[in-house]
């Protein structure tokens, strides 16, 4: 058997592929965070809780209304996105003029409340959610067994990341958004309703998190902590990519997934830390992040 650095080649390829899959989740979540930070200047600590709500929404739709995975892909982001907009209108919009720290504290507190509510009603042992029948099974790639569903996650994540990037970079709406972040009063003077646009943007970022939650539901058990586990890593991804850089967060998400996958082979104990080591190095060398503008 061929070996690379003392590791059998099939194992290494397998790990790279798995890294890519995890990277897909990092990318989708950090994309939402980057959009919200870039346009609203809010460090959205509720993102993990909203991701969790997306997964729970999928579970509830199935168990209470009998609506399957594909309906959940449509309804969960809309419902959670709407919930996000309510949050923005009620709480977050009051903090735009204050220091980042206030937004961080508020959204962190909201995340704890949301998680507490779900823990109270659903316990914390997790609920099962089955992979939709169309995506069950696996391809035998020779070097590994590739579950169809995981492949779907990568494709779907790439599609949604690309779509978001196109909307922000290539459409008129995106142009308004970018202009509003540069100079909100001026854009408002041209007749654009900036507060409404900001609310919609927050809703959009939240919808992305909910969508990632639906994608994650069949892979991980649906439980109130599932967001907490991810959010810190995702923040590191956003910091490494450059706060507010959309393309940066997508590329960094996938790359760090790969690096983490490799660490799991060479030094498993360090796999939870490696992303933060990279973050520290990047902050020292390029404080604005790899793709950020200082």
């Amino acid at each position: 058997m061929d070996e690379i650095f003392g590791i059998p080649a099939p194992l290494l390829f397998g790990q790279l592929l798995l890294g890519l899959i995890n990277g897909a989740f990092y990318a989708m979540l950090s994309l939402g965070l980057a959009v919200i930070f870039g346009l609203l200047n809010i460090v959205n600590m509720t993102h993990g809780a909203l991701f969790m709500m997306g997964a729970f929404a999928a579970w509830m739709l199935l168990n209470y209304l009998g609506l399957g995975y594909w309906w959940a892909m449509l309804i969960a982001p809309l419902a959670i996105g709407a919930f996000g907009m309510v949050l923005e209108k009620l709480f977050i919009s009051r903090l735009y003029k204050l220091d980042h720290l206030y937004g961080l504290l508020l959204t962190f507190g909201l995340a704890l409340v949301i998680e507490g509510v779900f823990r109270n009603y659903y316990g914390s042992s997790g609920l099962p959610y089955r992979i939709p029948s169309e995506l069950q099974g696996a391809w035998d790639l020779g070097f590994m067994f590739m579950p169809v569903y995981r492949g779907w996650v990568v494709v779907a994540a790439l599609f949604f990341c690309l779509a978001t990037w196109l909307v922000i970079e290539k459409t008129r709406l995106g142009a308004y958004l970018r202009a509003a972040t540069e100079n909100a009063p001026l854009v408002q003077a041209f007749g654009v309703n900036v507060p409404r646009m900001v609310t919609l943007t927050y809703g959009g970022g939240v919808a992305l998190a909910a969508l990632a939650g639906v994608l994650a539901a069949p892979i991980y058990s649906v439980n109130p902590q599932m967001g907490t586990n991810l959010i810190i890593v995702v923040f590191a991804v956003v910091v490494i990519g450059g706060m507010g850089s959309i393309l940066g967060s997508v590329i960094t998400g996938f790359t760090l997934g790969l690096i983490e996958g490799l660490t799991k082979v060479f030094w498993p104990e360090a796999s939870a830390t490696v992303i933060f080591v990279i973050m520290a190095i990047v902050l020292l060398a390029r404080p604005a992040g790899l793709f950020g503008r200082a």
């Binding site: 194992l11 498993p268 104990e269």
Partner: peptide
Amino acid sequence: RTPFPGTTDFSSFLLQ
């Protein structure tokens, strides 16, 4: 040995 707490994806360990 997998990091505790904080590991949610075990697929690479399972492949090993």
